[in-house]
Amino acid sequence: MPTVAGDRQTASRGAIPAARRRRRLIGERLSFQIGLILPSVLVLLLFQVVPIFIGTDASFRRWSLYDPDKTWVGLEHYRYVLSDTNFLFTVLPNTFLLIVASVGLSLALGMAVALLLHRGFAAQRLVQTVVLLPLMIGPVIASTMMRWTFNDQFGVVNAFLGWLGLGQPAWLADRWYAFGVIVFTDVWIWTPWFALLLLAGLKSLPKEPFEAAALDAAGRWRIFTHITVPMLRPVIGVCVVIRAIDCFRTFDQVWLLTGGGPARSTEVFSIYVFMEAFQNLNFARGSAAAVIGTLIIMVAGLALYALINRFMEVSR
């Protein structure tokens, strides 16, 4: 398509550019494409690809102050990480549990909010503004306020539970309560994202199927499960895949709420890498864990991408 216009343009300019063009090794079209992506490619290479190579290289070496030669140790660090019971039986399950719980709950809640906003009511603009807030204020402030809200001694949640006459758990001192608070915070932050994207999806749906279903006297739940969800499937699918991949690298919420504690029981992948590298000061071991995590999420990401491509073609 652009070639047609491009050729005409060179033709109208006369023979000289055409001749110069023929002598070039790379076509004008290709060199324009390269020019367009060159800045991005350079930034990506310099600040992501090169560090990834350095990190991968470091993961095969002994990296400490006592060993200035950085001796090549092969797979030693990988063997350590892959036989670390903490990594295998706490960190990885936590990471995947967080993905499933957070993505599932924020999808369900986001769908509910989207349906509510789609109905339209008097205070709709106010609600939409409030719903947008968590996404805008970001995970750091959100985690800070959640940590205070769930404070075991002075927090509002426990004050409220006490008023109801219920037990007041030490939220951040127990593994599963702490994990629950992390999931809750993550859901609090990401529900708005699902809600807004699903709302945009709902608004773009054609009206006819809904009118036809109403004529056939289908109930609300039936309309939802048989028309709304199947028609929204591409949007839901893309949202879930993007969010699931991003959720794998969650760091801020966990670090600020529990710091991976109590006793390293709520650590997720990013926290484990950080702890190995900066707390245990073993940069090479941290890098090995980082490489393992990257491989896991890359494979999962590509599989999800393939899945969603098929998924969306089928639904079309």
């Binding site: 560090p51 990190g55 470091a58 690298r249 995590g293 990257t294 890359m298």
Partner: peptide
């Protein structure tokens, strides 16, 4: 494809070596 692949890389995996760089 490169964009998609690099988007999946967890931040910590390249920020950790970037710290050393």
């Amino acid at each position: 494809t490169s964009i998609y692949v690099f988007r999946t890389v967890p931040y910590i995996s390249w920020v950790l070596p970037l710290y050393v760089v």
